[in-house]
Computed example of a mutant assay.
Amino acid sequence: METRKFEGIRTVILDYDGTIHDSTKNYIFAFKQAYEYLVAGGHAASRVWQDEEITKWLGYSSQAMWENFMPDLDEEVRAHASKMIGRILLEKAQTGQAVLYEGALETLQALKEKGYRLVFLSNCSRAYMEAHRESFGLDRCFDGMYCTEDFGFIPKYEIFETIRSVFPGGYMVVGDRFQDIEVAEHHPVRTVGCRYGFGFPGELDSADALIDDIRDLNDLL
């Protein structure tokens, strides 16, 4: 792997789901529960879902997910279904059923020991972020933790302005979806795409580097 392009990096901004946390199983379960509610209420047709049809929504904020998935759904019904998914995911984290990718915490600790500042940035709610912070002791790894709910679910590239005002440059953004990589379209940052996450083929093509395991990040820096 080429490392020269990452010289001068001091702050590493990391996505969570699909980058550090393997949310596949829990999200699929939560999505199906919410969809069953929609079917039971006559708001959606019964159907069989393939896993990849569900996991493609990981990386989106809940607001953006529903706007793209079922934009014409009644707002009150949508809010209930969205809260169902959020509640189930929160319960999974609080009861020890969340799973990190193998080597994730060790990789984060290794980067901290090298002197990098690590920042958590996820399209999630504050309750979700706090549950995972507590479940995995993420304060040991991250110097700052940001969720898009605290910013009204604006894009990550806009939240970057806040992070830049607190943490030193140069910057690297690591994530599995276009929402992470597009930060580089607006700011002078380097990007690393995680092919093991939930992105579609080609979604990460503009990243400066691609990795197939979170542990590969330690080899880049």
Rank of each mutant, 00 (worst) to 15 (best):
Q109F: 04
L111F: 06
D51I: 10
R87H: 07
K92R: 15
E113D: 15
Q50C: 07
L118M: 13
P71I: 04
E91S: 14
D72K: 00
E75Q: 09
V99A: 10
E53Y: 01
R117V: 06
H80G: 00
E75N: 09
V99Y: 04
A81S: 14
R117N: 13
E106P: 06
N68K: 03
R87V: 06
A110E: 12
Y60W: 12
A79Q: 13
R87G: 08
A64N: 09
A93T: 13
L89F: 00
E76T: 12
Q94K: 13
L89W: 00
K92P: 00
G103E: 01
P71A: 03
L108Y: 01
Q109G: 12
I85Q: 08
Y101I: 09
L73N: 12
K112Q: 12
T95A: 07
E75R: 01
R87T: 13
W66C: 02
S61E: 02
L73T: 03
Q94L: 09
Q94P: 04
T107I: 04
E76D: 10
S62H: 06
L100N: 11
H80R: 13
L105Y: 09
E53M: 01
S82I: 03
N68V: 05
A104V: 00
E91G: 10
G59A: 10
D72M: 00
E102S: 14
Q63M: 10
Y60T: 06
D74E: 09
G115D: 05
E106S: 08
K92V: 09
T55E: 11
T55W: 06
T107N: 02
L118A: 01
A110G: 09
A110M: 07
